[in-house]
């Protein structure tokens, strides 16, 4: 396996255990507190669903970018990467509206343990989205000049992972009532 890709897989492996730790802790609490269902009612399921869609679409662009890069078409790959970044951006914007709304209604990080988990898990994930976007911008800048095209695939793999984490978070935090 090419070195870069191998390394990305190891990064993902260690990230899985980090998110595994958060989600495991959350589940343990959740099972012990059936009353949390009354808290998660106050999350905005529609916003969450929309964001899921946004992330999935952006992952699609990441795949397209990889295909273009495989063909050696750097500029096109870069364009698709920028669309992926755009998806990340929309995700974060929606998130910030959601959070503002919730905070205005008094559901803050310290309200109770459900909301602590809600903000911590989603925040940790959002941080990964942001980091992915920054790296993707750097990769896109190189790809535009047809340089380091193998990185397009690597950042794509990472992005799919970030996507996947959200797919776990969404039902656990928003839907499970």
């Amino acid at each position: 396996m090419p070195t870069g890709r191998l390394a990305v897989w190891w990064v993902i492996a260690s990230e899985i255990v980090i998110f595994g730790g958060v989600l495991g802790s959350y589940l343990m609490h959740r099972l012990g507190h059936p009353d949390w269902a009354y808290q998660s009612v106050h999350t905005n399921t529609w916003a969450g669903a929309f964001n899921t869609l946004v992330l999935l679409t952006s992952s699609l662009f990441a795949v397209l970018a990889h295909q273009e890069a495989a063909k050696g078409n750097g500029p096109k790959a870069a364009r698709n990467l920028m669309l992926t970044v755009l998806g990340g951006l929309i995700f974060l914007v929606v998130k910030s509206f959601e959070w503002t709304h919730e905070i205005q209604h008094g559901y803050t990080l310290t309200s109770n343990t459900f909301w602590s988990f809600y903000y911590t898990a989603a925040g940790l994930h959002g941080f990964h989205v942001l980091a992915g976007m920054v790296i993707m911008l750097v990769v896109a800048a190189d790809a535009r000049k047809n340089r380091e095209l193998q990185r397009v695939e690597n950042i794509g793999i990472y992005w799919h992972f970030v996507d996947l984490v959200w797919i776990f978070l969404f039902p656990l935090l928003y839907i499970a009532k």
Partner: peptide
């Protein structure tokens, strides 16, 4: 790599408990 992840998560949680006042590990807050 395989074992430290949950503690990294725990460290974030504990740091929030210390600095922001969350109650991940505080029985009074659930």
């Amino acid at each position: 790599m395989a074992s430290v992840g949950p503690l990294v998560a725990g460290a974030v949680m504990l740091l929030f408990d210390q600095l922001v006042g969350t109650g991940f590990f505080d029985p009074a807050k659930g």
